[in-house]
Amino acid sequence: MPSPLEDTTPIAERKAVMYFVCGGMVQGHPLMASFSFAVASTTKIPVFGVNFRKCVTKKTAFPAAVQDAVAAFFCLQSLGFLPENISIISDSSGKGIFITTFLYLNRHKLLIPRRAILSSPFVDLVDNFYSDAELLMLDYVNAEMMSMFSYQYTENRPELRNTLLSPARGGLPEGYNFKGFPRTFVVWGKVEIFKYGIVRFVESLKKAGVEVDVLEGKDCVHDYVIFTKDRSREGVFGRIQDFMKVDDDNILRRKLTDSTSKVRLRNWY
C-alpha cells in the first residue's frame, strides 16, 4: 500500500483505522501487534496506533487510557479526518478501552467513529473465569492474572468495575447506553475463557438496535486473530474486508438517496 505521506487524496476523503492494542491494560505497543498490520494489508487503509498509558501505577490506571483514546480520536479529526471515515479495531483489553471511550463520547453527544472491529473483547472485569474448567484447560490465558489486571486497572474507581467497565454485565450507569454504537464486527474463539462475557455483550448491543456481525472461530483460543495465517474469504480477515466493503456500499447508497431526495425537493419547490 502507498505511504499515507504520499497520498494526494483530500484528507477529508481519506480513511483511517485507529488501533487499540491488547495486553491486559498493563503492556503492549501498537507497533508490535500483528493484528493491526494484517488489517492494514487486507483493507489497504493506514492504521493509527494509539499507545495509551498502561495501568502500571495508580496514576496511569483508569481513566488515563480512556483519556488518551479520546485525545487520539480528536487528534485524527484535527488533522482533517472525518469521523465517518474512521474505523476502530482492537483486541482483548484494547476493546474494553474503546467501548468505554464510545460510551463517554455518546453520553456527551460527541461524534463517534463509523465502524468497530473487536477481537476477543475483555468486557467483564468481575468474572474470575473459573466457572468453566474445560475452557481453562484449552485456552492459554491465565485467569488469575486477568483478574489481577482488572483490579489494577480499576484501582482509582473500583465502584465502576462491575458497571461501566464491565459492559458485558449490562448494568451501565445512568446516562450511558449502547444506542448509537457504530456498526460492529465481533470475533472470538470458541474455547476462550472470555466467550460467555462476549456473547452477553453482543446480546446487549443487539438489544440496543446496533447492527452486529459476529464470527466464532471453531476450536480457537483467545485473540486467535494474532496467530491465524488464514487470508481466505471465509476467514476472519476476509470477513473484515467484506464488513468494511458492505459499510462503504451503505454509505454510498445513503449519499445517492440523499442527493436524489434533494433533487426531488428542488423540483417540487
Rank of each mutant, 00 (worst) to 15 (best):
151 Y>V: 06
198 I>C: 05
57 T>P: 04
243 F>W: 03
234 E>V: 07
69 A>Q: 03
144 E>Q: 14
226 I>P: 00
118 L>P: 02
244 M>D: 07
195 K>N: 06
192 E>S: 02
36 S>V: 06
247 D>W: 00
73 F>H: 03
126 V>W: 09
264 R>K: 15
100 T>K: 08
69 A>G: 03
185 F>K: 00
41 S>H: 12
161 R>S: 13
215 L>D: 07
94 G>W: 02
250 N>C: 07
64 A>D: 09
100 T>N: 13
205 L>A: 00
51 N>E: 14
80 G>L: 08
26 V>F: 11
38 A>M: 13
113 P>L: 11
85 N>F: 03
231 R>D: 03
254 R>K: 13
184 T>N: 05
150 S>H: 07
87 S>F: 03
214 V>G: 00
110 L>E: 15
57 T>Q: 10
229 K>D: 10
244 M>E: 11
233 R>Y: 03
219 D>E: 10
235 G>V: 01
64 A>H: 09
235 G>K: 02
160 L>R: 10
108 H>C: 06
36 S>M: 10
118 L>K: 00
265 L>Q: 15
210 V>P: 00
171 G>T: 11
170 G>M: 08
83 P>I: 12
246 V>Y: 04
231 R>E: 03
169 R>P: 02
84 E>W: 02
247 D>A: 12
211 E>M: 04
164 L>Y: 03
263 V>Y: 12
42 T>V: 11
140 Y>D: 13
269 Y>N: 13
118 L>F: 09
68 D>H: 06
162 N>I: 00
177 N>A: 11
199 V>E: 14
134 E>D: 13
152 Q>M: 15
162 N>Q: 13
134 E>M: 13
160 L>T: 10
216 E>S: 04
147 S>V: 13
71 A>D: 14
214 V>F: 00
251 I>W: 04
112 I>E: 06
93 S>Q: 09
214 V>A: 01
84 E>Q: 14
51 N>R: 11
75 C>I: 04
50 V>F: 06
24 G>P: 14
82 L>H: 12
234 E>C: 01
207 K>N: 06
197 G>V: 06
191 V>H: 03
219 D>A: 09
170 G>Q: 07
62 F>D: 02
204 S>T: 00
115 R>G: 01
18 M>H: 12
222 H>S: 04
140 Y>Q: 10
12 A>N: 09
39 V>T: 10
112 I>K: 14
25 M>C: 15
229 K>G: 10
74 F>C: 08
176 Y>Q: 06
10 P>K: 05
189 G>A: 03
107 R>K: 15
24 G>Y: 07
241 Q>D: 05
80 G>D: 01
101 T>C: 13
101 T>Q: 08
136 L>V: 12
193 I>P: 02
52 F>H: 14
25 M>R: 13
79 L>P: 02
125 L>K: 08
63 P>E: 03
128 N>K: 11
204 S>W: 07
180 G>V: 08
34 S>L: 12
43 T>Q: 10
46 P>V: 08
66 V>H: 02
88 I>S: 01
48 F>A: 06
267 N>C: 11
111 L>C: 11
179 K>W: 01
47 V>M: 09
178 F>Q: 04
250 N>F: 08
15 K>F: 12
83 P>H: 14
20 F>C: 05
5 L>N: 13
